[in-house]
Amino acid sequence: MPHTVSIEDTGERYACSSEESLLTAMARMGKRGIPVGCRGGGCGVCKVEVLAGDFETRVMSRDHVSDDDRAHGRLLACRVYPASDLSLKVIGKLHKNVCGSAAGR
């Protein structure tokens, strides 16, 4: 049974089963909102804060998720699998850049 995921920043909603990560389901449906990177918990760009809902997680890099993050539901969307309807806000971004900030402008 798919759950409904709401991205509070953009009002975007999409369906995600408990077998699929929040990030893959979003990308597969052609939705936007959470930055998509490695999809393996290694790069950190897809960081979100879960505001409400139940979920399971798979292993993710400690470079991007501290114990404090984990305690507050600040997690990598590519490693979070919903167990209920869920709402989140986006806190990661594609911010670092080749040649510092200059290249990104």
Partner: peptide, 9 residues
């Protein structure tokens, strides 16, 4: 591609 510039491990 933006990921080329921003996504690393």
């Amino acid at each position: 591609h933006e990921t080329f510039l921003t996504v690393v491990s």
